[in-house]
Amino acid sequence: MKRKTILLLLFFGLSLSCLQAQTKDAPQVKKGMIKVTVLYPNGEGKTFDMDYYTKSHMPLMAKFFNLKIYAIDKGISGRAANDPAPFLAIGYLYFDKISDYENALAQHTEEIKADFPKYTNVTPVIQISEVVQ
């Protein structure tokens, strides 16, 4: 019983801290937005510099794409805690409409490609989605 109580307190504490981190002025992900997901598959010999990615590459992308919202995931494991992560990292870029993404990409493709070797030897997989919920 004591263990369940501790787990519930941890869950609610984390939930409340997430709620407290959001402000009314912060940009919000909304239904209908376009999300570009950039997945970096894991595998033998693949490298990824998370420090460079978070401090240099993604801020550069935010500048090129005039992003108000982006997010980064760091892979830590697969289905089970001891399984290797299927992706080293995943980046999320949010746009109001797909043309915002396409126009900025057309202008900055070469600069974006030139930055890849500075943090990874992985060819990313890209998916464009519409936010449903």
Rank of each mutant, 00 (worst) to 15 (best):
K46P: 00
S15Y: 08
Y101W: 12
I90V: 15
P84S: 09
F95I: 10
A89H: 00
E102L: 14
T23G: 13
D100I: 02
Y70H: 11
S99G: 12
F95E: 05
S99R: 13
K2I: 10
M61Y: 05
I72A: 12
K35F: 02
D96F: 07
K2D: 15
N82A: 07
K35T: 10
Q107K: 14
T54P: 00
S77L: 00
G13R: 02
Y101V: 03
K63G: 04
L88Q: 01
H108C: 07
A81I: 10
F95D: 05
G13I: 02
S15N: 10
N66I: 01
T23R: 12
A104P: 02
A89Y: 00
T109V: 10
L39F: 14
I69W: 02
F65G: 01
D96K: 15
K55P: 00
L67W: 03
H57L: 05
G13P: 01
Q20Y: 06
K74T: 11
A81C: 04
Y53I: 01
Y92M: 12
T5A: 14
D83C: 01
L60V: 12
F65L: 08
M33V: 07
V29N: 08
A89W: 00
S77E: 00
K31W: 02
N42H: 07
V38N: 06
L39N: 10
M58I: 13
S77A: 03
G43L: 11
N42K: 02
E110K: 10
K4D: 05
I98E: 15
T37F: 10
